[in-house]
């Protein structure tokens, strides 16, 4: 237990340099580039003294280095600061939007794995047959489809031509949003309230975005699963278990797939950032009120603290996922000790 805790702490410490690098990069870029929140807020025609006064108020008149040190000090206390545009803590809009992004990526991930792994297994078992070539063709095509175009096509086919699924937002207009205050995860909220009509509505809204994200990323996992399964199916222990009379299904799913999953899980950590990038585009296409939308809205307003905050939270999200991946890895593989 102590070992696991130590490991956990080590991993968290290791993410600090990464956060630091990204933060510095964004901080400098934001301030070196033209445009600032005061002009964005007041427009170009405000009198000079008003602009100067506002800048002083926000601390923007200090040298960049000093601003940077101030910000780091603030962060060290776990404080993301205040928005420069709206009267709110930066953490407030983030807390509102983060669950939407997590919900989207989680369901997207489920779709990706749900399509990618079974197809990859199938292709490896039917190696060099028409099925194999068909599945590999699918994987390569899907890999080259831009996420947002996939979103538009699904909207067109299943939202407009065949109006089955809603094409925007997380819930229908008739549902009052105060019902979703508990966790912000709408699926969870409706489940906890036992409100199955609303749950159905929430799920219907999730279908197209989740499939948009899931299908486009499934290609990578088809290829990964197929390649690893081919390796594992050639291994001696697969032959040995066949020689012991273990049925083919059990050989493939119990022995081969379980071993093939190890490198797949490792890749999952890396692919997760592709998933997050895809999520931004999906949010844009489906007007999904998540972190990606927040980032875009605030970038235009030059709301420095909020933009920095969003970037930090994204980076933390990535680290947490890679931590989870490591833990899953240790659970499947007895050779790995945390």
């Amino acid at each position: 237990m102590r070992r696991i805790l130590n490991y956990f702490l080590m991993r968290v410490l290791l993410t600090i340099p990464m956060l630091f690098v990204l933060l510095t990069l964004v901080f400098v870029v934001l301030r070196v580039m033209p445009g600032d929140p005061v002009s964005a807020m007041l427009g170009g025609h405000a009198p000079e003294y008003v602009i100067q006064q506002k800048k002083a108020e926000l601390g923007l008149n200090k040298p960049i280095f000093e601003q940077y040190i101030d910000y780091l000090g603030q962060l060290a206390h776990g404080d993301l600061g205040n928005s420069m545009i709206f009267v709110e803590r930066v953490s407030h809009p983030i807390a509102q939007r983060l669950p939407a992004t997590i919900e989207l990526t989680l369901f997207g991930l489920i779709v990706t794995l749900g399509i990618g792994i079974p197809l990859g297994v199938r292709a490896s078992r039917k190696r060099r047959t028409a099925q194999d070539f068909g599945i590999r063709f699918y994987a390569n095509i899907v890999y080259c489809i831009p996420v947002f175009w996939m979103g538009l096509i699904l909207q067109m086919v299943f939202g407009v031509l065949l109006p089955i699924f809603p094409i925007a937002g997380r819930v229908g207009a008739r549902i009052i949003s105060s019902d979703f205050d508990r966790t912000g995860f709408y699926v969870l909220d409706t489940l906890m309230k036992g409100n199955f009509a609303d749950l159905g509505d929430v799920l219907m809204h999730l279908v197209l975005p989740a499939f948009t994200l899931g299908i486009t990323l499934s290609g990578v996992f088809v290829r990964l699963t197929r390649a690893n399964m081919l390796d594992v199916l050639k291994s001696d222990y697969v032959l040995a278990s066949r020689a012991r009379g273990v049925p083919e299904r059990r050989v493939v799913y119990k022995h081969a797939l379980k071993n093939a999953l190890i490198p797949i899980v490792t890749m999952l950590g890396l692919q997760f950032s592709a998933l997050l990038a895809g999520a931004i585009l999906t949010e844009t296409t489906f007007s999904w009120p998540g972190m990606g939308r927040l980032l875009l809205e605030r970038i235009y307003l030059r709301d420095y603290p909020t933009v920095q905050g969003v970037i930090i939270v994204y980076a933390l999200f990535v680290s947490v996922v890679s931590l989870i991946v490591d833990i899953v890895y240790a659970i499947i593989d007895p050779r790995v000790q945390l």
Binding site: S235, D236, Y237, L239, A240, R244, H255, N259, D333, P334
Partner: peptide
């Protein structure tokens, strides 16, 4: 029953 050449890789590494 059959036993094979390479004992190092003939057991499933994920199974006791």
């Amino acid at each position: 029953a059959m036993i094979f050449q390479n004992p190092l890789t003939s057991l499933d590494p994920l199974m006791s």
